[in-house]
Amino acid sequence: MSLSFANEERYLLQPTKTVALNIKPSERTTIPKSECFKLGEINLNHVDTSVHLGITRTTSVCETAEVNVEGNISKARRALYSLLGAGLHGHNGLDHKSMLDLYKSFVLPVLTYGIEIFTPKSTLIKQLDLFQRKTIKQILSLPNNAADSCVLILTGLLPIEAI
């Protein structure tokens, strides 16, 4: 189907980016490597991981969620650090509303990117939620023992489970 569409639109599919990824439905299932997928006359390479639109896919559904949650947290941390020069830090920075707007606009979308596609387990959602709570407390210069519900009420943010 993709080859016929590419031919109709007169563009070439890149054989290095077009790969076959066998997804195992469970840990006990084994998939034979002898299966050969073709795209026209070209044999597709079998790979263990593949990235498409910023979402890393692996042969296991659980591993896909773990890899993407870890990646989202590190990317959100980098986005947060890049905004420090713009005044996104506690004391002597921007006012609280502006800092929260920056967080909501630039960091939160990176943190939650693709979650609806790979559906993480509750432990992974807790990791995302912990990152969000710690970040908000740091931005607002609140102590670590401040109640999470109070922080969410003050900021108007939803927990990651609700997003």
Rank of each mutant, 00 (worst) to 15 (best):
S4Y: 01
F5C: 09
A6H: 03
E9K: 15
R10Q: 12
Y11T: 02
Y11V: 07
L13W: 04
L13I: 14
L13N: 03
Q14F: 09
V19D: 05
A20I: 08
E27W: 12
T30R: 14
T30Q: 12
P32Y: 09
P32R: 13
E35K: 12
F37W: 13
G40P: 04
N43K: 13
V47A: 00
V47H: 00
S50E: 04
R57E: 00
T58I: 03
C62H: 12
E63F: 09
T64C: 08
A65Y: 06
A65F: 03
A65G: 03
N68H: 07
N68I: 05
N68K: 08
G71K: 06
N72G: 01
K75P: 03
R77S: 13
A79E: 07
A79T: 12
A79V: 06
L80F: 15
Y81T: 09
L84M: 10
G87E: 06
L88K: 07
G90K: 05
G90N: 14
L94Q: 06
D95W: 00
H96V: 00
S98L: 11
S98E: 06
M99K: 15
S105Q: 08
P109L: 02
P109R: 07
P109N: 04
L111V: 02
T112V: 14
G114Q: 06
G114M: 06
I117N: 10
T119W: 05
K121N: 11
K121L: 10
S122P: 02
L124M: 10
I125N: 05
L128F: 02
K134T: 07
I136H: 05
Q138V: 05
L140V: 02
L142D: 06
N144C: 10
N145A: 04
N145R: 14
A147Q: 11
S149N: 08
S149C: 01
L152F: 07
L152C: 00
L154A: 13
T155R: 07
T155N: 10
P159Y: 08
